[in-house]
Design a binder for these strands. Structure first.
Lengths: 355, 355
DNA sequence: ATTCAAAATAAAAACGTTTTTATTTTTCTT
DNA sequence: AAGAAAAATAAAAACGTTTTTATTTTGAAT
C-alpha cells in the first residue's frame, strides 16, 4: 500500500500576497514589476510579504498573459549516423556558455536537436510559428542560409554562431576563420612547406569559404599559387579526416603539411597518418583548429589555433538577451581571433628545404 | 527607416474554430482531446476545420490550465574549469537520443547545466518547486544520491542514467559496469597480465563502485588478489588519465595494463604512455570503455567495450514519457551490456609470460 | 471649506486552454 | 404521444498573470 504524502500547500500566487497585504492583485503585480505608479512604501511592504512566503511568479501565468515563452532555443546539430558520434562534441561547452549567460534571468534554455540544415530551417519555422521560444541561437551557417533570411524577415530575435555571405543586419558571434586559415597556412609556408592540404568542410558552409579565402591569401602573399587540388571537402567527421589523408597520400605529389578545421577531423587525420606510417613532425606537419583544448593530448600533441568555445557560448547568450530586449543587432557582433598554441615546429624539425 | 511588415494575422485558437464551426469552445476542446462525449460526426468536422486553418494548440494556454509545463528537463553536468573541456562530450549523443524519443510528442527538452552534484540537487529542487518541467533526466549518480531520494519522495517523474546503491523503486537506464569491468579485467588476466591498473572515477559515484566490484571479482575468480593499490581515482578528465599513468609508471612494480573508464581518460592515458615512451600493445596493454565510438581513431586504436550512448538516450526519453504518463517505475529499468570491439590482442602480442 | 489635479489603488478584462456544471436535443420505452 | 433516460452540446469557471480602465484618496490651490 503506497502512502501518499499530505498534499503540499499550493505555492503562493499574487492572490495570496493580495490577501496577506490587503492590496489588490493589480497593485501586487505592479509592485513586483517595479512599476513607478505604486507608492514606494507599499512596494516595500509587498516585497516583504513576497519574501516571507517565498513567492515565485508562476511562469505559465506570465507566459499566457505576455505571450512570451521565456525560452531561449538553441538548435543543436547532431548527425545521427555512424562515423559521426564524435561530431559536435564542442556543443557541451557551447551550451554551458549560453547557460551561464542565461543564469539569473527568467530565461531557460531549450535545446532542439536538428539533423541537417533543412531540419534546422523547419525547426526555426516551428519555433516562430508556435512561439516556442522568444529567441534563437544556431550555428552551422551556410553561405546562403535560409534561416537568417527567415528570421530577419520575421524580426525574430536571434544570434548566429557564424556569419552568412549576405549583407544583412543580424546579431552574430564568429571565429575569424579567414584570419586563422591565413595564419596557419602562412606559418607552414614560412616553414618551407609548399604542398599544403586544407581539410575543409563542405563549401556551402559559410566558414568553409572563409577558410579557403585565408588559405589562398597566404599563398598569394608569398607569391605562390594556392594548391587548390589539395583542398579536401566533406563533413567534419573523424572518418572524413582519416579518409582525406589516405586519399591525398596516394597521389604523386603528396602534401607535406595539413591544415585541419576542427578536432574531430584532426583526430582522423592523425589516425590516417599513423595508419600509413607517417610520423607527424617528421614526415609531415599538422596544424589544427581547436575549441575544446583536446589537441594537447593527441599523439603527438599538435600545434593549434585555440579558441575556448565556452567564451563564444557566453557571448551568444549575452547577445541573445540583449537582442530579446529589443537592442539593435548592429551593435551585437563579435568576431574572435583564436590564439596560437605552438606544440611543434612547423618545418619538420628543420629538415624541410627552406626557400 | 525600418519598414515593418504588416502585422501577421494572429494564430487560430479554439475560439476561431468555434466561430468557424458554430460549436462552443468546450466542444472544440473536447473534440480535439478525442473525448468520447462528442459525437463522431462533429469531431470530424472540427478536425477538418482545424486542419484547414492549421490550428496548433497554444502551449501556454494548455500549460496554465493543466499546470503542466510540457518540458522534459535534462541535467547536464559540465565542469567549467580548464582541463575539463573534453568532459561530457558524450552528452551530445545523449541529448540526441532523448530528443528522438520526445519527437512527435508535446514535450520539449530543456537542458539545465549543472556544475557539480550539489548544483544538481539544487536544480532538481527548483524544477520541482517551480514546476519548470514535468519530468527529469539526470546522470552522474552517486552511491547515495540525494536527488533520487528527493524525487522519489516527491513522486516526481524521473529517469536516472545510472543506479544508486539504495534499494528504491525508480526508473533508470544503466550500463552493466560490474560486468564490463569484470570482462575487461578477466580478458587481461587471461592474456597473462597480473599488474593491472584501473583508472576509475571517484568512489562516491555509484558506478565507480560497480567497476571496482567487477575488477575485484575477475581477480578472485582467477584465484588472485586484486591489486587495490592500482586503482586510480579522480575526475574523468583527460588530464587525470594522463596523470594517473605518469604516477603509476613511477612506482617500482609498474602495471602492464590499464583498464580505462571512458574516452576522455583513455585519451589521457594514451597521451601519458606516449609521453613516457611506452608503446601500447608492445610495452603495455590498454582496454577501454567507449560510448561515442572514437577509440577506433586513437593512436593506436584500442580495444574497447562499446555501447552507443545514443541508444541509452533514446531509452531514457521513452522511459520518461511513460513515467510522466504515470507508469510504475518498476517496469522502467534497463541495463545495457556493451559489446567488445577487439582492436588489439591483450597479451602484448604474445610477449607476456602466460601463467 | 471646496474644487481640481495628481497620485494611489482597485476593478475588470484578457491571454487560450480544460473541466465542471448546466442545458438542450435525441432516442428509447411505454 | 408523453415521459424519462441518454447523448450531445453550451455555458461558466478556473488556472495566474498583466494591462487597461475606473475609482478612491491625497494634496494643493483657491
Amino acid at each position: 500500500m503506497q502512502v501518499h504524502r499530505a498534499r503540499r500547500t499550493p505555492p503562493p500566487t499574487i492572490k495570496t500576497l493580495a490577501e496577506m497585504t490587503g492590496y489588490s492583485i493589480a497593485t501586487i503585480s505592479k509592485a513586483l514589476r517595479e512599476s513607478p505608479v505604486v507608492a514606494p512604501a507599499t512596494r516595500d511592504l509587498i516585497y516583504k510579504a513576497a519574501r516571507e512566503v517565498g513567492y515565485q511568479a508562476n511562469a505559465r501565468g506570465m507566459a499566457l498573459r505576455t505571450g512570451k515563452s521565456f525560452q531561449a532555443a538553441v538548435l543543436m546539430p547532431v548527425t545521427a549516423a555512424r562515423y559521426y558520434e564524435w561530431d559536435g562534441v564542442e556543443y557541451t561547452q557551447t551550451l554551458s556558455g549560453i547557460s551561464q549567460a542565461l543564469d539569473g534571468t527568467d530565461y531557460r534554455m531549450s535545446v532542439h536537436i536538428i539533423r541537417d540544415a533543412a531540419d534546422g530551417a523547419e525547426a526555426a519555422r516551428r519555433i516562430i510559428d508556435q512561439g516556442l521560444a522568444d529567441g534563437l541561437i544556431f550555428s552551422g551557417i551556410l553561405a546562403e542560409d535560409p534561416r537568417i533570411d527567415l528570421l530577419v524577415g520575421e524580426h525574430f530575435p536571434f544570434v548566429s554562431m557564424g556569419r552568412c555571405r549576405k549583407d544583412l543586419d543580424y546579431a552574430h558571434v564568429d571565429i575569424d576563420n579567414e584570419w586563422a586559415a591565413h595564419a596557419a597556412t602562412a606559418r607552414l609556408i614560412a616553414g618551407g612547406h609548399r604542398r599544403i592540404a586544407l581539410v575543409n568542410p563542405e563549401r556551402r558552409l559559410s566558414y568553409a569559404l572563409d577558410r579557403i579565402d585565408g588559405f589562398v591569401r597566404a599563398f598569394r602573399e608569398a607569391g605562390l599559387d594556392a594548391p587548390m587540388a589539395l583542398i579536401a571537402e566533406g563533413d567534419l567527421s573523424t572518418h572524413f579526416g582519416r579518409q582525406a589523408v589516405i586519399d591525398f597520400l596516394q597521389v604523386d605529389d603528396e602534401p607535406t603539411a595539413f591544415v585541419c578545421i576542427n578536432e574531430s577531423t584532426t583526430l582522423g587525420v592523425l589516425s590516417g597518418l599513423a595508419a600509413l606510417g607517417r610520423q607527424v613532425g617528421v614526415d609531415v606537419d599538422v596544424i589544427a583548429y581547436d575549441d575544446i583544448n583536446v589537441s594537447a593530448y593527441f599523439t603527438p600533441p599538435v600545434t593549434t589555433f585555440y579558441q575556448p568555445i565556452e567564451v563564444l557560448g557566453r557571448t551568444l547568450g549575452h547577445f541573445l538577451l540583449r537582442r530579446m530586449e529589443g537592442e539593435d543587432p548592429k551593435a551585437l557582433r563579435q568576431v574572435f581571433r583564436p590564439t596560437l598554441i605552438a606544440r611543434q615546429s612547423d618545418d619538420l624539425g628543420g629538415r624541410l628545404n627552406r626557400t
